[in-house]
Design a protein around this nucleic acid. Sequence first.
DNA 1: CGAGGTGTCGTACCCCGGTACTACGGTGAG
DNA 2: CTCACCGTAGTACCGGGGTACGACACCTCG
Lengths: 225, 225
Amino acid sequence: MTIRVIIADDQAMVRAGFAALLAAQPDIDVVGEAPDGRQALEVSGRTHPDVVLMDVRMPEIDGLEAARRLLSPPPGVVHRPRVLMLTTFDVDDYVYEALRAGASGFLLKDAPPADLIAAVRVVAAGEALLAPSVTRRLIEDFARQRPAPRRDPGLRLNGLTPRETEVLEHIARGLSNSEIAAALVLAEQTVKTHVGRILAKLDLRDRAQAVVFAYESGLVTPGTA
Amino acid sequence: MTIRVIIADDQAMVRAGFAALLAAQPDIDVVGEAPDGRQALEVSGRTHPDVVLMDVRMPEIDGLEAARRLLSPPPGVVHRPRVLMLTTFDVDDYVYEALRAGASGFLLKDAPPADLIAAVRVVAAGEALLAPSVTRRLIEDFARQRPAPRRDPGLRLNGLTPRETEVLEHIARGLSNSEIAAALVLAEQTVKTHVGRILAKLDLRDRAQAVVFAYESGLVTPGTA
DNA sequence: CGAGGTGTCGTACCCCGGTACTACGGTGAG
DNA sequence: CTCACCGTAGTACCGGGGTACGACACCTCG
């Protein structure tokens, strides 16, 4: 099974170079080219490639926007190619935008030819591949976002007891005392006692600040509501 | 400048294989080996390698914990090697733990030898590199965490006016009505009016739920407090 | 110009949330 | 056994938060 690839780049030389390089591989077919994002979308719709090699900066529609359109489900279109983004320089925003859009890879154009070929194969297989500098930033970002060993054993928020932690989670979902009491099968007053202790231990004033704390500490995470 | 590497793996065969492979490279020196995490720490402290190749599962101290200790600043120790994690199988938790710990790479042992050599060079250069399947998961995670284009122009939360949005941000920081009034130079009653309208428009009950909404909608983000 | 949206502020009222203090059964450590 | 801690729960109090209703100035748009 050969890998069907199209190449979108505004520079004809670059297209020709990549096309020659890839076409020389027995398992890769270059089935189309496009000089801008708009035509890339059109060619992709017509040829249904497995992989789209896409330059970030292009006229008409840039690579980021084109990737978004290819990868977000425009109603009626079933085909979703993998997108491998390319760029000459190494700019944060581009990378993050591309990954958000759902790109499967991000390479710098100065990468060795063998890397490009390998990347196409990796991406076609449904895996992903990034330039090392991009990988580093992504990892740093990841580690920065979740530095704490989530909450497997206890997480031990400033000496909160397990029960208090449980109550705090409910507060962080926006529940009232009576709702928490119902959820945990407790008297409302007991909930109040817990809440009071939580606020005291964490040095907070009210439940709103407790919600803030829950998010900032990582006890709860956006998207897990 | 040669790259100084140590290899930590509980299987002597594996160590020997990797050592032979790497030592054959003109720019790589294998300066130590260790059969478990404890000795890996000891050897690293003695030889100050540039890169530590670390198997995930090892006796005494496993690779994850060893990586944490190498990479977290134990007072007095200045040397911080790069850590390249290795594993036979491809388990989510290991990867995330390793990246949290600050590892610069994560490879599967079935990767081609050339990849391992390339990875050592990449990591030594301060960049990072992951197995393609790991990269894919990391990207998916990233895209899932931050799908929305943050909040550039207005973000237009369910028809909130700019002023109301501003008040909501202050609520989301845990401020009381009187504190918000002071911060925005308003009468407290005015703040109450805004708060009331915010709750009505967003169909929320109290300010605690407003805080939840602010985080869940991306109006505010953990770490930006 | 008049209508509507926005931002501002007032009075009045009620209730949930938070505080203070006390109390009691269970459990684990010393 | 005693002591400390945890989880449970009660009574009593009060203040901030939220609601209801009204009011006025400003700005924009038809």
